[in-house]
Amino acid sequence: MHERIKYLLLLSSICIFPTIACLAQSAQEILMKYDKVVFAPLDQYAEITIQITDKKGNSSIRKASMLQKGKHKRITRFTSPASQAGIGFLSLPNELMYIYLPAFGKERRIASHIKNQTFAGTDFTYEDMEALAYSDKYNPKLIRTTESSYILELIPKNPRNSEYSKLIITIDKKEFYGTNTIYYNKSGQKCKKLVTKMEKRGIYWIALSAEMTDLIKNHKTKMTITKITHDQKLSDEEFTIRKLVQ
């Protein structure tokens, strides 16, 4: 799942240069440090629970397992409810994406130009889930500093490739993880809000839960990690179509 929400981070830079965090830093430096924290683990295995709540308060729960290696290889498989068990998604570099439907015993490639579509009924779009470093995708501007956080405004470098006009992200001053992100649509209206709950597991900071609220549809998705392991040295073989259809 989404790198920013997920999992862990290595705070190596802070360990090595503890004083740097305390100094005034440029917006670009802050964002690069944030990216470093987000993409810290080499690989990971996580079991997640996804709770989707609609505007009437109806709630449904799904469970899935997820394997990820680096920035660009990920395989997600639903395990619950029974009617959806076995459905899998495979994401590979160059925006290649496949879906596997067990009742058909077939995989199908999914087009890449569907960034603003929601992922499997959640409030996360494919754009929210893509594994691009923020420092590559956005031009940051430091708009405020509080006692504990940096507040950055992120403007897409290529507006045609984003459904958002800007993001306002709150980054922890000490550990450089994100805690809160507000998304603005093309009309400048607040459209979504992401709140993450971070916890340190081993050497990484993990987003134990991430709640995305669609402020317009009044619909929300909460992803909670129930189990996580890191750096298992997963082989590239785990991220193939053959593995997807198994």
């Binding site: 959806q84 879906i99 439907l101 009742a103 058909f104 992922f119 499997a120 959640t122």
Partner: peptide, 26 residues
């Protein structure tokens, strides 16, 4: 149809569930 099995309603409930999953959130 796009799963390659014709523009019909599947006879199998499992297949319907799988197809339904793809439409979730629309």
């Amino acid at each position: 149809f796009v799963m390659g099995e014709g523009r019909t309603i599947p006879d199998d409930k499992e297949k319907i569930s799988n197809l339904w999953f793809l439409l979730e959130g629309q």
